[in-house]
Amino acid sequence: MSAQDIIREQVSTHPVVLYMKGTPQFPQCGFSANAAAILKACGVGEFFSVNVLESNEIREGVKAYANWPTIPQLYVKGQFVGGSDIMRELYQSGELQKLLKTALAN
């Protein structure tokens, strides 16, 4: 399977997927740490996370997948939502909580 196929499968089989540097427990970049913290603050304790530092193919592949040059990247129900700035803005406006609640409800 190509990196693109792997990513497509990951984001379509899990409602919430975070591509990040490190893990939610041990993030290895401030932006990734923020992204994981925002998901927790939204009440999403468990989500599928991918440590891009473990695979250069996925790290580069996910940038191409969303046409987005940076990590972290959040996907909800297969849709690219944004990076850490966007997650913060959507969290502050309450939109992220709504999006996640809907995604996890069904």
């Binding site: 046409n67 987005w68 944004g82 990076g83 700035d85 966007i86 803005e89």
Partner: peptide, 10 residues
């Protein structure tokens, strides 16, 4: 949307 705005900058 925000994603599209950031993409313009990128």
């Amino acid at each position: 949307l925000l994603v599209a705005r950031h993409q313009l900058v990128y």
